[in-house]
């Protein structure tokens, strides 16, 4: 099997606030292999973006990582100094953000912005080499007339083009791990299809590992090999993409899958399955399972103690006392 690139074990991130302590990342463990894509899904506020930021040690005060470990290529990132981290971020590990409008600097040309990371991380290149490399990256991500676009500012580009620039920036130092936080959420479907296709191509070319954070289960099904489902800061289910889509065990995973409208004729006026209620506040979590209030299978034991993530088959794990009996495999 291919080698492990990133291993996260029992990671916990705490925010100390006036209203009490909360743990948006609560005891998270997972692993990403070279060339593999891991999807993290969940609804807003479930801690998926906080998990990504914790891995890169970009958590800001009043937040801090309180326990656990993040091993990148066999070394603990939590033990690195600030300088060592700066060397890794943008170089061996890069991030693509959701909002291409706010994550590009409006007063620099896109050429300048791509060059910045090359200049920082690849010492000893001449200005011309840096410029050529930046233009090559723009070509790689499919920007037409790259040498002209190089001199343009972010506002002159469309949303899809900006997201391509973000990908070019992220890939410019050939990172081994790419973290993409809702990379296509702000884009239209036809542009989303272009960007996902590009990300797959670029990932294959560089054999990079990828963590893809999204709320769109369709995107997960298309891009990922392994999937984590998060709920209120915890992993509730972890498995291969087939495990999650064909043999979901956690009632939340099942609920999420059932609540998407499917393409089928005559589906009109059929009630969509919903998950009743709302995500609990992290300040006021129930005793026991965090999903109990919205779960139709909840029983006494769910209210007593929180279920642990139990191993099923292969890498498939679920945190539930009363897992869903799936209707046979596929």
């Amino acid at each position: 099997m291919s080698e492990t690139l990133l291993e996260v074990t029992n990671l916990r991130t705490r925010y100390k606030t006036d209203d009490g302590n909360i743990f948006p990342v609560d005891d998270i463990s997972f692993r990403v292999k070279k060339g593999q894509t891991l999807g993290i899904v969940g609804e807003s506020g479930c801690g998926k973006s906080q998990t990504a930021l914790s891995i890169m040690r970009l958590i800001q005060k009043p937040g801090e990582i309180v326990s656990g470990d993040v091993q990148f290529k066999g070394e603990s990132l939590l033990k690195k100094t600030e300088d060592e981290m700066r060397d890794i971020l943008g170089n061996q590990m890069a991030m693509i953000f959701q909002e291409p409008m706010t994550s590009l600097n409006p007063v620099y040309t896109i050429g300048d912005q791509i060059e910045e990371s090359i200049r920082l991380h690849q010492k000893g290149l001449t200005n011309l080499q840096i410029k050529n490399k930046a233009i090559d990256m723009l070509k790689l991500v499919g920007i037409p007339a790259a040498d002209k676009r190089y001199h343009e500012y972010p506002h002159q580009l469309s949303g899809g083009m900006r997201q391509r620039v973000m990908i070019a920036m992220a890939m410019s130092c050939t990172p081994q791990l790419l973290i993409a936080d809702e990379p296509t959420t702000a884009l239209d479907v036809t542009i989303q299809a272009q960007i996902l296709d590009l990300m797959r191509k670029v990932q294959k070319e560089f054999q990079a590992g990828m963590i893809l954070i999204t709320h769109d289960l369709g995107v997960v099904a298309e891009m990922c090999q392994d999937v984590i489902v998060m709920y209120a800061g915890k992993i509730v289910e972890y498995g291969t993409v087939e495990d999650i889509f064909y043999r979901p065990k956690h009632p939340y995973t099942k609920g999420l899958l059932d609540s998407i409208p499917h393409f089928e004729t005559g589906s009109r006026m059929k009630q969509l399955n919903t998950i009743p209620g709302l995500v609990p506040s992290l300040y006021n979590l129930p005793v026991g399972c965090r999903f109990q209030e919205r779960c139709k299978f909840a029983q006494e034991d769910c209210r007593r103690a929180e279920p642990n993530l139990e191993n099923l088959r292969g890498i498939h794990k679920v945190a539930c006392y009363h897992p869903v009996q799936s209707e046979g495999g596929n």
């Binding site: 037409p144 469309s158 899809g160 083009m161 239209d188 479907v189 036809t190 542009i191 989303q192 299809a193 272009q194 996902l196 296709d197 769109d216 289960l217 369709g218 995107v219 997960v220 099904a221 298309e222 993409v241 087939e242 889509f245 064909y246 899958l257 998407i260 499917h262 393409f263």
Partner: peptide, 25 residues
């Protein structure tokens, strides 16, 4: 046709070829 084919389907089964439009609106 392109719009319909661009929608990610929540099913990991490999899908028939997809129409990817080039360029922007």
């Amino acid at each position: 046709k392109a719009l319909l084919s661009a929608i990610p389907i929540p099913d990991p089964k490999p899908r028939p070829e997809r129409i990817i439009l080039t360029g922007d609106v």
